[in-house]
Design a protein around this nucleic acid. Structure first.
Length: 868
RNA sequence: GCGGGUGUGGCGGAAUCGGUAGACGCAGCAGACUUAAAAUCUGUUGCCCGACAGGGCGUGCGGGUUCAAGUCCCGCCAUCCGCACCA
């Protein structure tokens, strides 16, 4: 024992590194590459972190969820793969380079080293031998190979699309860098600019990605719903409308509608601002051009476009109705029509579409009801469109049909006349993967004036990112690099240039889980390793990734499957999405944000800055973020209280799917429990030393409550096991507290000593996945002959001790609780009701009333319905 | 704006199926131990009336279904996540 601390306390400072070393030495958490085939596999993975520099409590919580699963599954006899790596490319490294002159590679490597050290102090059961970072050429080189495979297979293509262009900084901005339509640094109004970029054809997989959702039984329903809505399958009609006066050779406009049944309620046609016809009008009309330019300055983010006030510009053009001879409708350019969805043109039917009614009211356009609800045939639409089902009216050949029948009928009619057709449309768009940035995986393509876009030959991979780059100029440093991009064309040998765009970092995270199976394979994946470990049995991460990351990973896996890199379509068999970590934010009166440990809080609710004594404004509890400095550094807490305290606390109070607020008080509570666990073990060890061999052998002594304690112990095994399986770690912890309380109450009672020892040993082993260090320390006091807790199997409950023979029933009168009765399990209705009526309190509650109905739910409740 | 969540004591939360609301923890209060403090232990703690017994109210708000609603249905409010170049 460490002599420097009080012999009363568990010394985590000495114990934690010692046990961490013991696990590493034994290779406890190394996943077997060559298993003997006797154990089932279990792959548990948390979304790998971006190396921002320091871990925060949110990371610890995320990794603790996987941690408990990993240690628990290991104890249940699985070969567990639980790896760690780094999602290392991205914008923050470039921002650091521009702001502080640190090279992105250096900044990233330093951050990784610091975060790795932080994570290792937590004592996680990770297989560090498989660690890699996406910025390792070994990894991104294989990614380049994958991309070229995709390209050859027709999954990749180049086409134009819009980006946010900052005219002052001469650079492309991410959506988060556009604030109120302006560049975050320059403040300049952002323009939409069209660039030729690489896309992956995720839309080719739309049907399959949608169908696959139904097989993901261990995914949260809400994530599946979000993905389903995102993919957005819709059936509708695509058809053309004739322009009365052609413009620039355009004589018709193709529209898409999911409600072709409302075609007779049309009152206008609306074009996306970047629709070819709108552009043609803009070329000839300055006012139109000004309106289009205004729409262009809104940025590319859908949220901004959709939330903006609906506005339009009347082009003065008209289109003819396909079925009503002589009827014409004005053509507008509207800011809420998206070029990327459908055909970029819609017909407006205000009576039955909310956006259209708002637009029509604003600009005085007509409103014709063509669907009448069955219970309200004379519907009048004012400000709220009617979008429900009903019977078609005012619609010629569609009159009297319901919505579904009218859709089929109108499509048939459009097809018969050669005007259009029924189509399935997707909200999902192809995935644009080009980024005009330095710190990412280079796209392995060479542009030759003669041969066009040429793949970099495989033997020249990886295309390495040069590290001698300068950030003194705006724009992409790869573009400015003196030599990097100048190469000979691999096909014809002429002077050519490299693609200077890099991949979206979502590409990096779309296949890393497959790479962990064989992180140093010479091909993107090692099929034998992938077949052994995939799918990920339990994937864990933030709900903020519900759509993009998870959808891209599912798409990538399908594409890799078609090319034989993996043998399955769905990468994640089970998914758990965790909530965020929150904390109060603090700022001084002059507006500086302060870290929580710079603030002294006072009992009266006020707070001051420790350094200066200045008044501190206590702000809202919100998501921990660096900018607001409301983060709590786990390393400091580990230093003070130990890793087990942090581990216990991040799981103890909250259901993992919900947000948590970090509080100092909670941390101290967790610290006390860790100490108490050790004290319990020490007390039991001392008692046990004094026991006779006979007493030791018979934990189930008559009387003295020993059997009751044993029942608690074995019921706790069941309850904790179920809670862990259900990801209800906070409930598991509550049950562990109860067992600790029960064991504590048995202290000093010789008749219960053996039962108490069983309780404490069980408690330690059940708590071990959460607080493994103190568990090892305590277990070594009680049963050193059994070796490491990390190597022990999970405790098994004795069914005989779990079973209950008596239950408490609630007795209600008119649904209000009036008493309880205790009965043998499985008591029949008649006996239960008789027992209830015999109860003094119930009898009094029933005085003077006539019982009209008796309800009995076996082993649960008796309810009397009465009349007075 | 659209899509998806969440809302229960002073606080975090618990409550397979609709069946004793508030498990467990934190904080508080009272007490024991101590010269004292810390640590530890015991009791108590949803709100209101009541000395007790007991009674009333109570799961964001408003309705509804049911013998019975935190749980199911309808309508609101607040708040969080995502919206395709933050990761």
């Amino acid at each position: 024992m460490d002599q420097t601390t009080s012999d009363l306390a568990y010394d985590f400072r000495a114990a934690e590194p010692r046990w961490q070393e013991a696990w590493t030495k034994r290779g406890c958490f190394r996943a077997e590459d060559r298993p003997d085939g006797t154990k089932p596999k279990y792959y548990v993975l948390e979304m790998f972190p971006y190396p921002s520099g320091k871990i925060h409590m949110g990371h610890v919580r995320n990794y603790m969820l996987g941690e408990v699963v990993a240690r628990y599954k290991r104890a249940r006899g699985f070969d567990v793969l639980h790896p760690m790596g780094w999602d290392a490319f991205g914008l923050p490294a470039e921002n650091a380079a521009r702001e502080r002159g640190i090279a992105p590679a250096v900044w990233t490597r330093e951050n990784i080293a610091a975060m790795r050290a932080d994570l290792q102090r937590v004592g996680l059961a990770l297989d560090w031998s498989r660690e890699f970072a996406t910025c390792d050429p070994e990894y991104y080189g294989q990614q380049q190979k994958l991309f070229l495979d995709f390209w050859r297979a027709g999954f990749a293509l180049r086409r134009e699309s819009a980006v946010n262009w900052d005219p002052v900084d001469q650079t492309v901005l991410a959506n988060e860098q556009v604030i109120d339509g302006r560049g975050w640094k320059s403040g300049a109004l952002v323009e939409k600019r069209r660039l030729r970029q690489w896309f992956l054809k995720i839309t080719d997989f739309a049907e399959d990605l949608l169908a696959g959702l139904d097989t993901l039984e261990r995914w949260p329903e809400r994530v599946r719903v979000m993905q389903r809505n995102w993919i957005g399958r819709s059936e509708g009609a695509e058809f053309s409308l004739r322009l009365i006066t052609p413009v620039a050779g355009i004589d018709r406009v193709v529209v898409y509608s999911t409600r072709p049944d409302t075609l007779f309620g049309m009152s206008f046609l609306a074009l996306a601002p970047d629709h070819p016809l709108a552009m043609a009008v803009g070329a000839a009309n300055r006012d139109a051009a000004a309106f289009i330019a205004e729409c262009q300055s809104a940025g590319t983010s859908e949220a901004v476009i959709e939330a903006a006030e609906k506005r339009g510009f009347d082009t003065g053009l008209c289109v003819a109705h396909p079925f009503i001879a002589g009827a014409t409708y004005p053509v507008w350019i509207a800011n809420f029509v998206l070029m990327d969805y459908g055909t970029g043109a819609i017909f407006g039917c205000p009576a039955h579409d909310q956006r259209d009614i708002e637009f029509a009211r604003k600009y005085g356009l007509g409103v014709t009801v063509v669907v009448a609800p069955k219970d309200e045939p004379d519907l009048a639409v004012t400000d709220k469109a009617f979008i429900g089902d009903g019977l078609i009216v005012n619609s010629g050949f569609l009159d009297g049909l319901d919505v579904q029948a009218a859709k089929s009928r109108v499509i048939a009619e459009l097809e018969a006349r050669g005007l259009g057709r029924g189509v399935v449309n997707w909200r999902l768009r192809d995935w644009g993967i080009s980024r005009q940035r330095y710190w990412g995986c280079p796209i392995p393509v060479i542009h030759c004036e003669i041969c066009g876009a040429v793949p970099v030959p495989e033997k020249q991979l990886p295309v390495r990112l040069p590290e001698d780059v300068a950030f003194d100029k705006p724009g992409n440093p790869l573009d400015h690099h003196p030599t990097w991009k100048h190469v000979a064309c691999p096909q014809c040998g002429a002077a050519a240039t490299r693609e200077t765009d890099t991949f979206d970092t979502f590409v990096d995270s779309s296949w890393y889980f497959a790479r962990f199976c064989a992180p140093h394979a010479a091909s993107p994946t090692d099929r034998a390793a992938v077949d052994r470990w995939m799918p990920v049995d339990q994937y864990i991460g933030g709900i903020e990734h519900a759509i993009l990351h998870l959808l891209y990973a599912r798409f990538f896996t399908r594409a890799m499957h078609r090319l034989g890199h993996v043998g399955l379509q769905e990468p994640f068999a089970g998914l758990f999405t965790q909530g965020m970590l929150t904390h109060e934010s603090y700022r001084t009166e002059d507006g500086r944000w302060l870290y929580p440990d710079e603030v002294a809080k006072h009992p009266d609710g006020t707070a001051t800055e420790r350094a200066t004594g200045a008044t501190v404004i206590v702000g809202a509890i919100e998501k921990m973020s660096k900018s607001k400095r409301n983060t709590v550094d786990p390393s400091a807490v580990i230093e003070r209280f130990g890793a087990d305290t942090v581990r216990w606390f991040v799981l103890s109070d909250n259901p993992p799917e919900r947000d948590v607020e970090w509080t100092e008080a909670g941390a101290q509570g967790a610290f006390r429990f860790v100490q108490r666990l050790y004290r319990l073990a020490r007390g039991v060890a001392a008692e046990f030393a004094d026991m006779t061999p006979l007493d030791r052998a018979s934990p189930d002594q008559a009387g003295g409550g020993a059997r009751a304690l044993r029942q608690t112990t074995h019921r706790t095994i069941t309850a904790v096991t179920e809670a862990i399986e259900a990801f209800a770690f906070n409930v598991a912890i509550a049950r562990l507290y109860e067992l600790a309380n029960a064991a504590g109450e048995a202290e000093g009672k010789p008749a219960m000593a053996a039962a108490r020892r069983e309780a404490v040993i069980t408690l330690i082993r059940l708590a071990a996945p959460i607080v493994p260090h103190v568990a090892e320390e305590a277990h070594a006091l009680l049963a050193p002959e059994q070796g490491l807790v990390a190597d022990l199997p999970w405790p098994e409950a004795d069914p005989d001790l779990v079973r209950r023979d008596r239950v408490t029933l609630a007795v209600q009168v008119m649904g209000k609780l009036r008493g309880t009765i205790e009965l043998p399990l499985g008591t029949d209705a008649e006996t239960a009701i008789t027992a209830a009526l015999a109860d003094r309190k119930i009898a009094r509650a029933l005085e003077g009333a006539t019982i009209v109905k008796r309800v009995h739910v076996p082993d649960r409740i008796v309810n009397f319905v009465v009349r007075t």
